[in-house]
Design a protein around this nucleic acid. Structure first.
Lengths: 343, 343
DNA sequence: CTGAAAGCGCTTACAG
DNA sequence: CTGAAAGCGCTTACAG
């Protein structure tokens, strides 16, 4: 039986192996792989070619242990948010990668399921963490205590030293309400996610507050699990036993609005917007297609994601500056699915 | 000026700190945090409460360095795939998390941009890597050489010891072709992604091969950048100067099919499927909505993702078993957008 | 410019 | 059951 080493099982080469091959000290090898070290061109050349020969790359884990920088940022996100706005996630990950940060992805179906995975991360010396989900204040403090910089994306957070990037859902929802009221809609309906979904809640609250302030009857809120099917079913059930059809429907996001629009058109044979105005939120790609032409609200998601990364990097550099909350205006996108009243 | 330590800047407690607080050796502390160590209940109790007091969690980096297991798997995925099938990514990440694996996310807009980020990862002692993008064979070998288990998701890969999980795009596309031919469609068109997109190519190749074998004229292939707008524009331009309209259109994915359907209905005033049959691929959620009712193909994406993780774990345990390629049948989903001929 | 040495925070034989 | 010691693979003062 030969002693040939199988390349698959061979352990990666270390700086000692390279040092031996190049006839230098291990510390010299190390210097060749850090940016600003004084190394003679000739030595560097020899070391680098020995390294290439052995397929050597410095072990970043060992490096992190000693530099106390892991160059790793955790991205915490629920399955729902990921499926619903994959682009937010892509933009965050991409912006991080461009800053030479590694991205650790923490995901689970909802905030509660996320928690064990998040806590498990306490043992990993992260440089930073961006959360697109609501975290327990206690958990956040644990991370802060370990020196992890934190930024919250689209979730309010009341923990000191945690920055936040928020879309002004409240303001946009109020504008929608005002437009619908001004156009003469009297009977309004809201279609929301689950009771506890924070973004949905914010949007619906803003809308109903503005309707109340306009002196109209406060709209009924239909809660759903955010899915198309559930939304459609609940809406049809609601309409079935309601005294009258709503004239305007505000949905906490575009997917809900599509379900409502389909239900109105294909199940109830209503014309949109002649019989009913429908408004969504997010401006996903499908919204502008001719089959929907959904009036909606566009939060500046990419800008916000890039800003979140910027805030995070700043906080990594200066951990003790006061927490900043950046609030971004959303753009109203008026299409054919709703009658809006101009001021 | 007081010497009060700011909790935010305090370095995380180490096992030595806990040992001192509990009056035991550092190695004893370590034992309390590994599963199957012999520790007296009393000692463990004392150590654990000291640890809780200090907010101590073992540093997984240091642990990995010594155990040679990082419990980390890299997920390599392009922006396109991520936006197009966020659910694949979620399923992969979730399955990994359930196996107590950490997930490192590597993303970039396309295969080429992905490369630097992937190579950067060579320095991180991964346990495994799942790629949803095409990797250079050389790069794959570098990982294998470092003992990283690899699985390719929906990309053929010819490197030994790399497992693959594939949908049978070829077979499904051939079936679509046969159905369209049998229903009497003579003039067919294919709408593809970019020339080099591997999944798109596989689907289109299967379709055109079957059409050729059926003795019909080989369909023209319209290449697009996968975006709705580009697809629509190129299609309308093509139709504008074509001698006749195609009777059946096969699209490499559902998004392209939606663009084609909208163009047919709203720009060309054609009826679907009376004037033209349209078929997509993927069965995204929008496909079954009443505004589209798209006939399409459903690859068992969740099953495949779970299987990919299963293969990966198996290969982590047994690095040297022969490479396996699992090919999954897709389901034809017949809706209203195409006339299919029954055999 | 280069080397010898200490140390990052752990795990794990090895004794006792 | 517990402790002392070696070592995982690096970086970085400290000398020279």
């Amino acid at each position: 039986m030969s002693e040939q080493t199988d390349p698959v099982k061979r352990k990666p080469a270390t700086s000692y192996d390279v040092a031996r091959a190049a006839g230098v000290a291990q510390s010299t090898v190390s210097r060749c792989f850090s940016a600003d070290s004084l190394i003679s061109a000739e030595t560097r050349q020899r070391v680098l070619s020995a390294a290439a020969e052995l397929g050597y790359t410095p072990n970043t884990l060992a490096r992190s242990l000693i530099t106390q920088r892991s160059n790793t940022v955790a991205l915490v996100i629920t399955g729902y948010t990921m499926r619903d706005s994959p682009n937010v996630m892509y933009t965050l990950a991409d912006a991080l990668a461009r800053q030479s940060m590694r991205v650790m992805l923490i995901t689970a179906e909802n905030d509660e399921d996320l928690r064990p995975a998040v806590l498990d991360l306490l043992g990993f010396p992260l440089d930073g963490l961006i959360t697109c989900a609501s975290m327990h204040a206690d958990d956040s403090r644990q991370f802060l205590r370990r020196g992890v910089a934190m930024v919250s994306y689209n979730r309010k957070i009341e923990v000191p030293k945690v920055d936040a990037v928020l879309a002004d859902h409240d303001g946009a929802s109020r504008q929608i309400a005002e437009h619908l009221v001004r156009a003469g809609h009297k009977h309004l309906l809201c279609v929301a996610g689950p009771e506890e979904a924070p973004v949905s809640r914010e949007r619906i609250d803003g809308f109903t507050a503005a309707v109340r302030e306009a002196g109209l009857e406060v709209p009924h809120v239909l809660h759903t699990d955010f899915s198309y099917d559930d939304c459609k079913a609940r809406f049809l059930a609601y309409v079935g036993k309601a005294k009258r059809l709503p004239q305007g429907i505000f949905c906490a996001n575009d997917e809900l609005a599509f379900a409502i629009m389909d239900a109105c058109r294909y199940d109830l044979q209503l014309r949109v917007p002649e019989d009913v105005s429908i408004v969504g939120f997010d401006d996903v790609a499908v919204a502008e297609r001719p089959s929907y032409l959904l009036s909606t609200v566009r939060p500046p998601a990419e800008v916000m994601a890039n800003k979140a990364v910027e805030l995070l990097l700043r906080r990594i550099r200066e951990p003790d500056v006061r927490a900043r909350t950046l609030r971004f205006d959303c753009e109203l996108v008026e299409r054919a699915s709703a009658r809006f009243g101009k001021p």
